[in-house]
Design a protein around this nucleic acid. Structure first.
Lengths: 235, 235
DNA sequence: GGTAAAGTTTAACCATGGTTAAATATTTTG
DNA sequence: CAAAATATTTAACCATGGTTAAACTTTACC
């Protein structure tokens, strides 16, 4: 009953997923950083690291942090695939908004079958991105690199496209929606005040000013056709 | 992390659900029967009964079996509601067949939000029955009685409607589909051989013979308009 | 009605995944 | 470069939900 037939527990899946995400930033993932990300204690993390190392899901050198093995990565990618497919499904099929999908997907990702995964994948016509612009890993464990650079570090004068947003802060996502920002929208960066001051954007005919913290949740890329009129794909 | 914020664990939900179903047959539910239903040991059940009694989800008299309190019933009904809504959703929205829905719903029922529940309820237009003809409890903890009597005990000569099937045996459900039996289909009972022998049915223009064991998975009611031609609602 | 069988509970144990406090490494800094 | 600060690990503990084996009730039957 506690086992429930699963090869890896939901807890293990959460650990592996968190490590995967953290190791995209830093070479090695430290105990404390992981503990903070998972909302648990460093002691609990250390114990789990030993267990995961025994199961060959990661390489663990005491005091030096961890790094996933390919086996660990495959599990992480499988869960991230579940998460992002579910997010997109909730948005498309059940009308969830992009600030609501993360919390629901967080619970469901551990409990769907391969069959369910395949069915929603097919129903969504084999999508490659989730509602936040994050890439959806393939079934066989490959994932595109993240796109975009932070809007918080953008220079005025550029014409850019909104490629991606951070997924796990509903408040930020609601704010962005209110401001008229959505995936694939084109905008011009009019101004970026020094001292982490606000950034002013032109969205179609509207001018909007947003703080640096919120801008940190947004990732952009230079417009492919910077000379043409911006195309507002936002609904 | 083990807590995960839930008031009741998935294990408790499974226990309460199993007890609810068993106590519809027998006044009190015994340790052994529960253990068999849950695929666990009698000792584990006893321990859990004490815990559930402490939490006032059931009344427990040692050696005498248990019965849910109203609180326990409400939890059971909530989970059964989840289960049956999910089953119907999987069938309608994702093309699952009636032999596939139970296993998937069994896992998902513990992990959906109230919001998810409401959304699929609305999307399905507030349904009252799942794909097996079982009633879907209301949000406030009320459930219709089960309909139908067993086809295994039916007398020849009747014209009947298929009201309900047992939900948790995929093989039986696939067999029934192959034989052309589905919910709401009308049929005439032509013959029922003694000694638990096979039952012969007329479905439209087809005549089918099924064993008593399979018939035990099917529940019927006398046709409301026994004089008219059978209406085949089956697709 | 006593005894055997069946059912139930208790006891001792295990694994998982948490906790806090203390001990030990590592890193930073004056 | 030593001491202080920080990070990490260990140890002892807890709760949940399982196990098996032994003890104890209840039921069934002669």
């Amino acid at each position: 009953m506690a086992d429930s037939g699963k090869l890896v527990s939901a807890a293990v899946e959460d650990y592996v997923k968190a490590i995967f995400k953290l190791q995209q930033e830093n070479e090695k993932v430290s105990t404390t950083v992981l503990a903070r990300k998972l909302g648990t204690s460093a002691a609990a993390v250390t114990k789990m690291m030993k267990q995961l190392a025994e199961n060959k899901l990661l390489d663990y050198t005491p005091y030096q942090g961890v790094r996933l093995t390919r086996s660990g990565e495959l599990i992480a990618l499988e869960i991230i695939r579940h998460h992002r497919l579910i997010e997109l499904y909730l948005q498309r099929a059940l009308g969830y908004s992009w600030d609501e999908v993360d919390a629901e997907a967080e619970k469901l990702e551990h409990h769907i079958s391969e069959d369910f995964e395949d069915r929603i994948d097919r129903m969504l016509d084999f999508p490659t991105r989730d509602p936040h612009g994050d890439p959806i890993p393939t079934r066989d464990g490959w994932m595109e690199a993240h796109r975009g650079t932070s809007l918080a570090t953008a220079e005025p004068g550029q014409r850019v496209v909104l490629m991606r947003v951070k997924d796990s802060n509903p408040e930020a996502l609601r704010l962005l929606t209110q401001l008229g920002l959505c995936l694939n929208i084109e905008m011009e960066i009019l101004d970026a005040q020094p001292m982490n001051g606000p950034i002013t954007l032109k969205l179609g005919d509207n001018v909007r000013t947003i703080g640096r913290e919120l801008a940190g949740h947004v990732f952009i890329e230079p417009c492919t056709y910077p000379d043409e009129e911006p195309i507002i794909v936002c609904s």
